[in-house]
Protein backbone atom coordinates (compact mmCIF):
# COMPACT_ATOMS: atom_id res chain seq x y z
CA UNK A 1 0.00 0.00 0.00
CA UNK A 2 1.32 3.43 -0.92
CA UNK A 3 0.42 6.20 1.49
CA UNK A 4 0.90 9.92 1.07
CA UNK A 5 1.07 12.04 4.22
CA UNK A 6 0.65 15.80 3.79
CA UNK A 7 2.76 17.63 6.34
CA UNK A 8 2.84 21.23 7.35
CA UNK A 9 5.48 23.23 9.14
CA UNK A 10 3.97 25.25 11.99
CA UNK A 11 5.09 27.40 14.93
CA UNK A 12 5.87 25.40 18.05
CA UNK A 13 2.87 25.19 20.38
CA UNK A 14 4.59 27.30 23.06
CA UNK A 15 4.97 30.23 20.64
CA UNK A 16 3.50 33.53 21.69
CA UNK A 17 1.91 34.73 18.47
CA UNK A 18 2.81 38.29 17.39
CA UNK A 19 2.64 40.22 14.15
CA UNK A 20 4.68 42.88 12.34
CA UNK A 21 4.17 45.44 9.56
CA UNK A 22 1.04 46.91 11.03
CA UNK A 23 -0.34 43.48 11.92
CA UNK A 24 -0.14 42.20 8.38
CA UNK A 25 2.68 39.67 8.77
CA UNK A 26 3.20 36.84 11.24
CA UNK A 27 6.35 37.53 13.24
CA UNK A 28 8.48 34.43 12.66
CA UNK A 29 11.45 36.02 14.36
CA UNK A 30 12.87 33.60 16.92
CA UNK A 31 10.01 31.16 16.37
CA UNK A 32 10.80 27.46 16.39
CA UNK A 33 8.91 25.53 13.72
CA UNK A 34 7.69 21.98 14.16
CA UNK A 35 5.87 19.23 12.31
CA UNK A 36 2.15 19.96 12.83
CA UNK A 37 1.10 17.73 15.81
CA UNK A 38 -1.82 16.15 13.93
CA UNK A 39 0.43 15.38 10.96
CA UNK A 40 2.70 13.52 13.38
CA UNK A 41 -0.27 11.33 14.27
CA UNK A 42 -1.10 10.81 10.58
CA UNK A 43 2.51 9.89 9.85
CA UNK A 44 2.64 7.46 12.78
CA UNK A 45 -0.48 5.68 11.50
CA UNK A 46 0.89 5.54 7.95
CA UNK A 47 4.07 3.90 9.25
CA UNK A 48 2.04 1.34 11.22
CA UNK A 49 -0.11 0.52 8.20
CA UNK A 50 2.92 -0.18 6.01
CA UNK A 51 4.91 -2.12 8.62
CA UNK A 52 6.56 -5.37 7.54
CA UNK A 53 7.29 -4.28 3.99
CA UNK A 54 3.61 -3.65 3.26
CA UNK A 55 4.15 -0.60 1.07
CA UNK A 56 5.73 2.81 1.55
CA UNK A 57 5.06 6.22 3.03
CA UNK A 58 5.75 9.42 1.11
CA UNK A 59 5.51 12.78 2.84
CA UNK A 60 4.71 15.94 0.92
CA UNK A 61 4.99 19.57 1.92
CA UNK A 62 4.24 22.76 0.07
CA UNK A 63 6.77 25.21 1.38
CA UNK A 64 10.01 27.02 0.76
CA UNK A 65 13.43 25.59 1.66
CA UNK A 66 13.00 26.63 5.31
CA UNK A 67 10.65 23.68 5.87
CA UNK A 68 13.34 21.07 5.11
CA UNK A 69 14.25 20.39 8.78
CA UNK A 70 10.61 19.43 9.38
CA UNK A 71 10.61 17.21 6.29
CA UNK A 72 13.83 15.54 7.47
CA UNK A 73 12.21 14.97 10.83
CA UNK A 74 9.34 13.12 9.11
CA UNK A 75 11.93 11.01 7.26
CA UNK A 76 13.68 10.33 10.58
CA UNK A 77 10.40 9.20 12.11
CA UNK A 78 10.08 6.66 9.33
CA UNK A 79 8.74 8.05 6.04
CA UNK A 80 10.27 6.34 3.00
CA UNK A 81 10.75 9.41 0.86
CA UNK A 82 9.70 13.04 0.63
CA UNK A 83 8.52 15.66 -1.83
CA UNK A 84 8.68 19.40 -1.36
CA UNK A 85 6.75 21.65 -3.69
CA UNK A 86 8.73 24.81 -3.71
CA UNK A 87 6.39 27.71 -2.94
CA UNK A 88 5.05 29.69 -0.04
CA UNK A 89 1.74 28.08 0.98
CA UNK A 90 -0.58 30.94 0.00
CA UNK A 91 -3.78 29.32 1.28
CA UNK A 92 -5.36 25.88 1.61
CA UNK A 93 -6.57 25.93 -2.00
CA UNK A 94 -3.09 26.76 -3.31
CA UNK A 95 -1.56 23.98 -1.19
CA UNK A 96 -4.21 21.46 -2.20
CA UNK A 97 -3.95 22.27 -5.87
CA UNK A 98 -0.20 21.62 -5.81
CA UNK A 99 -0.60 18.33 -3.96
CA UNK A 100 -3.39 17.24 -6.34
CA UNK A 101 -1.14 17.91 -9.36
CA UNK A 102 1.48 15.63 -7.84
CA UNK A 103 -1.03 12.90 -6.96
CA UNK A 104 -2.55 12.88 -10.45
CA UNK A 105 0.73 11.59 -11.86
CA UNK A 106 1.71 9.60 -8.73
CA UNK A 107 -1.39 7.81 -7.42
CA UNK A 108 -1.67 6.66 -3.81
CA UNK A 109 -4.00 4.18 -2.10
CA UNK A 110 -4.45 6.39 0.92
CA UNK A 111 -3.79 10.07 1.57
CA UNK A 112 -3.57 11.34 5.12
CA UNK A 113 -3.56 14.88 6.41
CA UNK A 114 -3.83 16.20 9.93
CA UNK A 115 -7.32 17.18 11.07
CA UNK A 116 -6.12 20.78 10.90
CA UNK A 117 -2.94 22.79 10.93
CA UNK A 118 -2.37 24.60 14.20
CA UNK A 119 -1.46 27.85 12.44
CA UNK A 120 -4.24 28.67 10.00
CA UNK A 121 -6.60 25.96 11.28
CA UNK A 122 -8.63 25.48 8.18
CA UNK A 123 -9.40 21.75 8.25
CA UNK A 124 -9.62 22.36 4.53
CA UNK A 125 -6.88 20.46 2.76
CA UNK A 126 -8.40 16.97 3.21
CA UNK A 127 -11.81 17.93 1.81
CA UNK A 128 -10.44 20.03 -1.04
CA UNK A 129 -8.08 17.26 -2.02
CA UNK A 130 -10.90 14.70 -2.00
CA UNK A 131 -12.95 16.98 -4.21
CA UNK A 132 -10.14 17.75 -6.66
CA UNK A 133 -9.32 14.04 -7.01
CA UNK A 134 -13.03 13.09 -6.96
CA UNK A 135 -12.55 10.56 -4.15
CA UNK A 136 -14.12 10.33 -0.66
CA UNK A 137 -12.73 12.32 2.24
CA UNK A 138 -13.31 12.07 5.97
CA UNK A 139 -12.48 14.87 8.36
CA UNK A 140 -11.57 14.49 12.04
CA UNK A 141 -10.87 10.79 12.01
CA UNK A 142 -10.15 9.19 15.39
CA UNK A 143 -9.63 5.61 14.23
CA UNK A 144 -8.47 4.25 10.90
CA UNK A 145 -8.10 0.62 9.86
CA UNK A 146 -7.52 -0.78 6.40
CA UNK A 147 -8.52 -4.20 5.22
CA UNK A 148 -7.83 -5.07 1.62
CA UNK A 149 -9.27 -2.26 -0.44
CA UNK A 150 -11.47 -0.82 2.26
CA UNK A 151 -11.02 1.58 5.15
CA UNK A 152 -12.99 1.53 8.37
CA UNK A 153 -13.06 4.98 9.86
CA UNK A 154 -14.37 6.48 13.07
CA UNK A 155 -15.33 10.08 12.56
CA UNK A 156 -15.92 12.55 15.37
CA UNK A 157 -19.39 14.10 15.60
CA UNK A 158 -20.75 16.38 18.34
CA UNK A 159 -21.36 14.20 21.36
CA UNK A 160 -20.39 10.93 19.72
CA UNK A 161 -18.93 9.25 16.68
CA UNK A 162 -19.83 7.64 13.38
CA UNK A 163 -18.32 4.40 12.12
CA UNK A 164 -17.93 4.38 8.34
CA UNK A 165 -16.58 2.08 5.69
CA UNK A 166 -15.04 3.75 2.67
CA UNK A 167 -13.33 2.12 -0.32
CA UNK A 168 -9.80 3.27 -1.14
CA UNK A 169 -8.49 5.64 -2.38
CA UNK A 170 -9.50 7.97 0.42
CA UNK A 171 -8.31 11.20 2.01
CA UNK A 172 -8.53 11.22 5.81
CA UNK A 173 -7.76 13.96 8.32
CA UNK A 174 -6.12 12.34 11.35
CA UNK A 175 -6.96 13.40 14.90
CA UNK A 176 -6.00 12.06 18.31
CA UNK A 177 -6.80 8.41 18.75
CA UNK A 178 -5.62 7.37 15.25
CA UNK A 179 -2.14 6.73 16.60
CA UNK A 180 0.51 8.10 18.95
CA UNK A 181 3.32 10.35 17.69
CA UNK A 182 6.56 8.41 17.14
CA UNK A 183 9.91 9.70 18.34
CA UNK A 184 12.75 9.26 15.85
CA UNK A 185 15.57 6.97 16.97
CA UNK A 186 19.27 7.37 16.18
CA UNK A 187 19.11 5.04 13.19
CA UNK A 188 16.15 6.99 11.82
CA UNK A 189 17.95 10.29 12.22
CA UNK A 190 21.07 8.97 10.47
CA UNK A 191 19.15 7.42 7.59
CA UNK A 192 16.97 10.51 7.11
CA UNK A 193 19.96 12.37 5.74
CA UNK A 194 20.23 10.09 2.75
CA UNK A 195 16.57 9.35 2.07
CA UNK A 196 15.27 10.92 -1.15
CA UNK A 197 13.77 14.41 -0.88
CA UNK A 198 12.76 15.69 -4.26
CA UNK A 199 11.90 19.30 -4.93
CA UNK A 200 9.28 20.20 -7.53
CA UNK A 201 8.42 23.69 -8.72
CA UNK A 202 4.87 24.89 -8.04
CA UNK A 203 2.33 25.43 -10.80
CA UNK A 204 0.39 28.67 -11.18
CA UNK A 205 -3.12 28.73 -9.84
CA UNK A 206 -5.66 31.47 -9.17
CA UNK A 207 -6.51 31.78 -5.47
CA UNK A 208 -9.73 33.04 -3.93
CA UNK A 209 -8.63 34.24 -0.53
CA UNK A 210 -6.09 36.57 0.99
CA UNK A 211 -5.20 37.30 4.61
CA UNK A 212 -5.43 41.09 4.94
CA UNK A 213 -4.39 41.45 8.57
CA UNK A 214 -4.31 39.84 11.98
CA UNK A 215 -5.65 40.70 15.39
CA UNK A 216 -4.71 39.42 18.79
CA UNK A 217 -7.47 38.76 21.32
CA UNK A 218 -8.34 41.70 23.57
CA UNK A 219 -6.46 41.42 26.86
CA UNK A 220 -8.66 40.09 29.63
CA UNK A 221 -9.27 42.15 32.75
CA UNK A 222 -7.95 41.51 36.25
CA UNK A 223 -9.15 38.42 38.02
CA UNK A 224 -11.62 38.95 40.83
CA UNK A 225 -10.71 36.59 43.66
CA UNK A 226 -13.29 35.00 45.92
CA UNK A 227 -12.57 33.31 49.24
CA UNK A 228 -12.29 29.51 49.18
CA UNK A 229 -14.94 29.22 51.90
CA UNK A 230 -17.45 31.38 50.02
CA UNK A 231 -18.39 29.76 46.67
CA UNK A 232 -21.90 31.20 47.15
CA UNK A 233 -20.35 34.58 46.41
CA UNK A 234 -19.03 33.21 43.12
CA UNK A 235 -22.49 31.96 42.23
CA UNK A 236 -23.95 35.37 42.99
CA UNK A 237 -21.36 37.16 40.82
CA UNK A 238 -21.91 34.75 37.95
CA UNK A 239 -25.63 35.36 38.20
CA UNK A 240 -25.91 39.09 38.81
CA UNK A 241 -22.69 40.52 37.38
CA UNK A 242 -21.48 38.20 34.64
CA UNK A 243 -25.05 37.00 33.90
CA UNK A 244 -23.91 33.61 32.68
CA UNK A 245 -25.93 31.38 35.00
Amino acid sequence: MNILVCISNVPDTTTKITFTDNNTQFNANGVQFILNPYDEIALARAIELTEGGNGKVTVINVGDASTEPTIRKALAIGATDAVRINAKPHDAWFVTYQIAQFVKSNPFDLILTGRESIDYNGSKVAGMLGELLDIPSASIVKKLDIEGNQATVEREIEGGKEVLTIPLPLVAGAAEGVSEPKIPNMRGIMSARTKPLIVIEAVDVKTNSEIISYETPAPRGQVELIGADDPAKLVELLHTKARVI
Partner: peptide
Protein backbone atom coordinates in the same frame (compact mmCIF):
# COMPACT_ATOMS: atom_id res chain seq x y z
CA UNK B 1 -13.63 40.41 4.44
CA UNK B 2 -14.43 38.02 7.27
CA UNK B 3 -12.76 37.60 10.65
CA UNK B 4 -11.80 34.07 11.68
CA UNK B 5 -9.81 32.39 14.40
CA UNK B 6 -6.19 31.54 13.63
CA UNK B 7 -3.23 30.02 15.44
CA UNK B 8 -5.60 27.81 17.43
CA UNK B 9 -7.31 30.66 19.19
CA UNK B 10 -4.15 32.65 19.83
CA UNK B 11 -5.12 35.22 17.17
CA UNK B 12 -7.66 36.20 14.54
CA UNK B 13 -7.11 36.64 10.82
CA UNK B 14 -9.07 38.99 8.57
CA UNK B 15 -9.53 37.13 5.31
CA UNK B 16 -10.59 38.72 2.05
CA UNK B 17 -12.56 36.54 -0.35
CA UNK B 18 -12.07 37.58 -3.95
CA UNK B 19 -14.25 35.02 -5.76
Amino acid sequence: TVKKTAFSGKAFAIVELTS
